[in-house]
């Protein structure tokens, strides 16, 4: 059986649309009948990553692959990259500019939250080239 695949282009610097893709992924998972807990974990992890992509990287692409066993989501951008991934994984670490914080984002919980709500998280980043984030949620 083929996996259900979803693709979204995320535009940058448009906070009003930020979260659209994670909302659509959530809707698809509900229609498929995944358990509420799995849906919540995917929705939160992907939302955080999507916001990061809008705030830091001027948008990018999101590709999700859904099977009965697991949900894999790859978020790819060509933004500035993360110089120190270890530091970025710490709760509260934030580089968000003031205008972004005023909107309630940038509390430094992005990557830590993604890690908390996913079963596997891999971050590949090169300064000046971009960042790719691999999120996996296992259907327990």
């Amino acid at each position: 059986m083929d996996a259900v695949t979803l693709h979204y282009d995320v535009s940058g610097n448009d906070f009003t649309c930020a979260g659209e893709a994670s909302r659509k992924i959530k809707k698809t998972l509900k229609t498929l009948g995944f358990s509420p807990e799995i849906i919540r974990n995917v929705a939160i992890a992907v939302y955080e990553a999507e916001i990061n992509m809008v705030v830091h990287a001027n948008g990018g692409t999101i590709d999700a692959s859904v099977t009965p066993e697991q949900i894999d989501v790859v978020l790819k951008d060509t933004g500035p990259g993360i110089p120190n991934i270890e530091l970025a994984m710490q709760e509260g670490w934030s580089t968000a500019p003031e205008n972004v914080r005023q909107l309630g984002f940038g509390a430094g919980m992005g990557l830590p939250n993604i890690k908390k709500y996913s079963d596997a998280l891999r971050v590949e980043s090169e300064v000046g080239k971009g960042t790719t984030i691999y999120i996996t949620v296992i259907n327990k």
Binding site: M1, V4, K30, T31, L32, G33, P68
Partner: peptide, 14 residues
């Protein structure tokens, strides 16, 4: 909302 009672069938329908 659910397309089917089991995931496999729901995914085929999706």
């Amino acid at each position: 909302l659910k397309l089917a009672d089991n995931l496999k069938e729901a995914m085929e329908k999706m």
